[in-house]
Nucleic acid binder design. Structure first.
Lengths: 66, 66
DNA sequence: AAATGATGTAATGTATAAATTACATTTGTA
DNA sequence: TACAAATGTAATTTATACATTACATCATTT
C-alpha cells in the first residue's frame, strides 16, 4: 500500500515519533506504514490524515483511479 | 467506523454478495463493514471504493473533518 | 404454502495489524 | 570527532480483521 504519508509528514517538519504520539501508535507502526509494506486499518489511516491535516484521498488514494 | 457503503451499494442496485464477489471477500465481511462495527483494512476500503466507483473520501471520510 | 434470493448474525479458526523490546545506522550539530 | 536525535528494521507477542460454516428472518415469486 504505497502512500504519501512520509512526504507529507516531512513537509510539516514532523518526526515519526511526534506523529506516532498524536495518532496513538508506536513509532515503528508509523515507519512501517510509510514504508508502504503494510496494510493499515481505516482507523489508523483516518487518525494519520487528521494529524497531518489531510484527507484519506490526499494520502492513500491513487490518483487517476477515480 | 460509520461509512456510506450500504447506501452507495443500494443506489447501484448491487447486492452484498455481488459486491463481495467483486471485492474478493465474503458476503459476511461486507455486511459487517456496512454495519459499521468493523475497522476494515485500507486494502479492503480501496477495493470497495473501486467496485462502487467512488473514492475513499466518498465512502469513509467524515464530512466536515477537513 | 412452498421455494428462492437477499440479508442479519453468531461461533470458531486463521492470518495479519500493531505492540513491545531491542539494536544498528544515519544525520545533524556542538 | 564525539554526541544525540531520528530512523530502519528484526524478533516475538497480542489483538483483531476476515474466512468459514451455519442458521434464522424477510421479501418476492410460483
Amino acid at each position: 500500500m504505497k502512500n504519501r504519508v512520509k512526504i507529507t509528514r516531512v513537509m510539516l517538519n514532523m518526526t515519526q515519533g511526534e506523529l506516532a504520539r498524536q495518532v496513538g501508535v508506536t513509532r515503528q507502526t508509523i515507519g512501517l506504514v510509510e514504508k508502504g509494506e503494510y496494510n493499515p486499518t481505516l482507523q489508523l489511516c483516518v487518525a494519520i490524515a487528521e494529524a497531518l491535516n489531510k484527507t484519506l484521498d490526499d494520502l492513500f488514494w491513487e490518483v487517476g483511479k477515480e
